[in-house]
Design a protein around this nucleic acid. Sequence first.
DNA 1: GAGGTTAAGTTATAACATAACATAAGCAAA
DNA 2: TTTGCTTATGTTATGTTATAACTTAACCTC
Lengths: 176, 176
Amino acid sequence: MLSNSRLVHQPHDHRRCISAALTRARDLCAEENLRLTPTRESVLRLLWQSHRPLGAYQLQDQLAKISGKPIAPPTIYRAVEFLLKTGLIHRIASLNAYIGCPFPNSDHSNLFMICTDCGSAAEVAHSSINKLLQSTCEKANFTLQDQSLEIFGLCPNCSLQQQENGGISSADKDHE
Amino acid sequence: MLSNSRLVHQPHDHRRCISAALTRARDLCAEENLRLTPTRESVLRLLWQSHRPLGAYQLQDQLAKISGKPIAPPTIYRAVEFLLKTGLIHRIASLNAYIGCPFPNSDHSNLFMICTDCGSAAEVAHSSINKLLQSTCEKANFTLQDQSLEIFGLCPNCSLQQQENGGISSADKDHE
DNA sequence: GAGGTTAAGTTATAACATAACATAAGCAAA
DNA sequence: TTTGCTTATGTTATGTTATAACTTAACCTC
């Protein structure tokens, strides 16, 4: 099982997440002869600023702020499209939002564990779940092509806090 | 395993699906003292016209056609909200669309098998998948609240047809 | 039938996404 | 080094999905 859940839900040196993601992205693009342009890199970096998925228009606002000039939606959607295609990010359908992929090289089908309190999302590549899905499909004569698995609940941190203090939100924290 | 996959993907007497769904809805609303108003019933009926999920604005068009007067989006969204809350329909997040629930009484977490060719969607309540997800969450100290599992591929019918004639779409059929 | 509650109508707008066309940047071969 | 091809970005407009806010009507109970 490949997962970044431990990392996402604990305090950690988040600068390492960002720089590791950028390194992976540069390597991957170099290998495949793809252009990681400034816009694309900025969007990727923004998506790694936290472990929370960001929507296209949040990205737009933030990129506009960084670059000091207005950014139009197509700019964002193009960068997002590129990053999705290359596997550097994922789309979370139920949130209309995007998040950096922690293991873009591995060929994986994903499961996201999304915290309804702090908003953080961890990615899990769980081979027994995938196998079970595959066999379920086979039994139904359904030819599996793609999957979108998103589960909602409380991350370890927020679970603990709810138990301790009876449910005060920690939406302002994301355990960077 | 509870599933309507066999039914969805085979030719069948679809009038029975519709009338069964309406009976279930009426019973459930009677039991829980909820009002299945004409608008709500119309929307539910529309969602049972086929086994394909419909978007809010498709519902709007069709309801306008049926009722002979313009329908505003909030009307649709309110009906949808009611039907979702009572468990009579589900939302398919990755399609921004809605579909009737074939077993609204059973307390179930769902998996949808959505055909990328004909658009039909079957619902599967698979206890071993749910157990595996639950145990995966427990191991990660993640408190599961809700899930959105949507898998894409070719339904049995479309699989067969692709094998037979090399990939001619059957998007116009949905095996009612 | 007065008054509370729930549902529906109406208008406007927010939030998410793409089409279509124009311009510019990167790059390879003449 | 410029010509021409390809890829990326800018720009404007619009399509699609969803909700806010306020008004009116239906229903239900006393």
